[in-house]
Write a protein that binds this DNA or RNA. Structure first.
Length: 624
DNA sequence: GCCGTTTTCGGCCCGACTGTTTTCAGTCG
């Protein structure tokens, strides 16, 4: 069973509540059971149709939006939104919680939401959601996506003009029917027209690396502005998220700094969508939104904290301040009107009684509680990486030969590297068969004899066939030191088959690492449907290792999965999957992801010295 | 809908900017 380290406080809170005398002093468990019949049972949550966490989260998101459109209590709406976010961040499947009571223990999940999750898991349906859907026209949710339209205005469109869809809105605008509708002035109307014309341009998230390419010159531009002391990219970018929705740029400087003017002049800016003395929002030519904020140096730390987020982390921090009769905002931490911290982030954390928390952890996944306990992980850094266990030469689909790749690896400070060219398989260019691999083994032996202070490990990235067999025979695999097994096709198998296929592959006696375990490509291809929990359990008991593939489009494992691997004691191999020497730079992306997954250097196979890595690899060999 | 040193009811983070208003609601982050 996975230990949810992130969610211990609820148990502490329960313990406290048990000691408190109440007018009707019945044991909490009993009183909770009375409040919701669903919590009285402890039957397994499994057995129904397979419903994943994302499906549950989406249902809660939809509940929140439909309730908002109906004009329901905003705190009730917020409860659904927080629940959706919590479910997305869970390191394990809801169906693995075992009982409704276990769900109820999660922070922000009470008896009602627990029973709704239970209902969805068991039946694949949520009655409350279906009822809401029947009351709120489907198209209204689409209207919420338009800039300037929130629940109140969508409701006004629906009740005032009978506008229920984007098409209705377009017609109403064309017919001038929005004139006179309270709250819909000419500016808003032209904004809506523009948004409808842009229509097809859907909101997108950008790869971190893409965002980085746009952030660097923009920051340089802002740094040169008179009065600017510092420029930092905050937001999800600073938290190292695999994709970012926009760039949040914090500018520290004097109050006279004209940040809006500076952005207007920037050649990459397409339009300015909002601009005030301390805040300015623009769209870059490629459509990327940039939110910038100007603060005085005395507030820089508090502003950086606020602007880095996540929203949920900020909420918790502000609540923490409130509980201490303090107020936290982007200008500082205040007792009454007196600012007691805010110049640096560390000041603010210290004043709130906890150590500084690395941005990658600020997702309200238990980091504040870990900080309270003094148990924040010492996150891995790029300099901890000793070698790379997944790289390709031009023998298969790489672009450089063995010598060039070794030179590049050394230039990146690595001390060892496994050459893991592809096996022969459908669609893989120039994959190696057993004979070519045998010749490469000889070539590597000869090279190692000449190398000093660097070792090339002999390996392969062997394909996992549709039935779970491997594309190379054991006779050649046994001569290798690193066998990276990978799925490169048949992505659409049903969950049970896909899982069985991968588990069978891991049964192979020489497999050391499962490459890019879920096969997802960011913004392109979803992860294949697989029971990740089973894969981790198999990796632990077998044993073998799981890869965190550092290619910016893969970043596979994701952050939550990294944490599951860590908690189950499965070492992670942070791999470049280099196809040229330049790709070793991608290891930095893997490190960001690993840090978001709470990994320390001890949790990472290739952060260990070669002798230890070899010993670990030896453990994975089930036959010799 | 959740939660509890605010405690079983009555709260629930905080501020900037915009547009449409004449003091503020709505939206956004």
């Amino acid at each position: 069973m996975v230990r949810l380290t992130g969610h211990a406080p609820r148990q502490l809170k329960r313990a406290a509540s048990r000691t408190r005398p109440t007018a009707r002093s019945s044991p909490p468990a009993a009183s909770r059971a009375r409040r919701s019949p669903a919590t009285s049972g402890s039957a397994s949550l499994k057995g129904g149709p397979h419903v994943g966490n994302e499906e549950v989260a989406s249902a809660f998101d939809e509940m929140a939006e439909l309730l908002a459109i109906k004009g329901e209590n905003r705190f009730r709406i917020g409860a659904y939104q927080r629940a959706a976010q919590l479910v997305r961040s869970l390191p394990k499947a809801l169906s693995d919680f075992g009982s409704v009571e276990a769900l109820d223990e999660l922070p922000g999940i009470g008896p009602d939401l627990a029973s709704k999750i239970d209902e969805l898991l068991r039946s694949g349906r949520m009655r409350a959601l279906n009822q809401l859907r029947s009351k709120v026209p489907r198209g209204l949710r689409e209207l919420l996506r338009l800039p300037g339209l929130g629940p109140a205005r969508v409701r006004a469109l629906h009740s005032g003009l009978g506008v229920d869809t984007v098409a209705d809105l377009r017609q109403a605008l064309d017919a001038g029917r929005l004139q006179g509708l309270r709250g819909f002035g000419s500016v808003l109307q032209s904004g809506l027209r523009a948004a409808l014309e842009a229509g097809a341009r859907q909101q997108q998230r950008w790869l971190w690396t893409t965002a980085s390419q746009h952030a660097a010159p923009l920051c340089a531009h802002l740094e040169a502005v008179a009065g600017v002391a510092a420029v930092v990219v905050a937001g999800s970018y600073r938290r190292g998220c695999e994709t970012v929705g926009d760039l949040d740029i914090l500018v520290t400087g004097s109050g006279k700094t004209n940040i809006g003017g500076a952005l207007r002049e920037y050649q990459g800016v397409r339009e300015v969508t909002a601009s005030g003395p301390t805040r300015c929002t623009v769209a870059l030519r490629n459509g990327m939104q940039v939110d910038s904020r100007l603060v005085a140096p005395i507030s820089a730390g508090a502003a950086l904290l606020y602007f880095t987020g996540s929203k949920q982390h900020n909420l918790r921090m502000r609540q923490r301040a409130q509980a201490r009769q303090l107020k936290l905002n982007e200008y500082g931490l205040f007792r009454g009107r007196k600012r007691i911290a805010g110049k640096t982030e560390a000041d603010v954390f210290e004043a709130l009684g906890i150590p500084w928390i690395p941005p990658e952890l600020r997702e309200d996944r238990g980091e504040i509680e870990a900080a309270e306990r003094g148990e924040l992980p010492e996150l891995i850094e790029l300099k901890d990486i000793q070698g790379d266990l997944h790289a390709h030469t031009d023998a298969s689909d790489g672009h450089e030969d063995l010598n060039q790749l070794v030179a590049a690896a050394r230039a990146h400070g690595l001390r060892f590297m496994a050459v893991t060219d592809h096996s022969r398989y459908l669609g893989i260019v120039r994959g190696l068969d057993a004979d070519r691999l045998a010749r490469q083994i000889d070539e590597i032996d000869a090279l190692n004899a000449k190398l000093r202070d660097f070792v090339v490990l002999k390996g392969t990235e062997v394909d996992i066939l549709e039935d779970g067999g491997l594309a190379l025979p054991d006779s050649i695999l046994r001569r290798l030191e690193v066998v990276v097994a990978a799925v490169h096709g048949h992505f659409a198998l049903p969950r049970q088959k896909q899982t069985a296929r991968i588990l069978r592959a891991l049964d192979g006696p020489f497999v050391s690492i499962l490459a890019h375990p879920t096969g997802r490509l960011l913004n392109e291809r979803a992860a294949y449907d697989v029971d990740f929990q089973k894969i981790v359990e198999t990796a632990r008991s077998r044993p073998c290792f799981l890869e965190l593939n550092s290619q910016p489009t893969r970043l596979d494992l994701n952050d939550a999965m990294c944490r599951v691997a860590k908690e189950q004691g499965v070492l992670v191999s942070i791999a470049s999957d280099a196809h040229s020497g330049l790709d070793f730079a991608d290891l930095a992306a893997g490190i960001r992801q690993a840090r978001r997954g709470w990994l320390t250097a001890r949790d990472v196979l290739n952060a260990r010295p070669l002798s230890e890595v070899r010993a670990q690899l030896q453990r994975t060999r089930l036959a010799t």
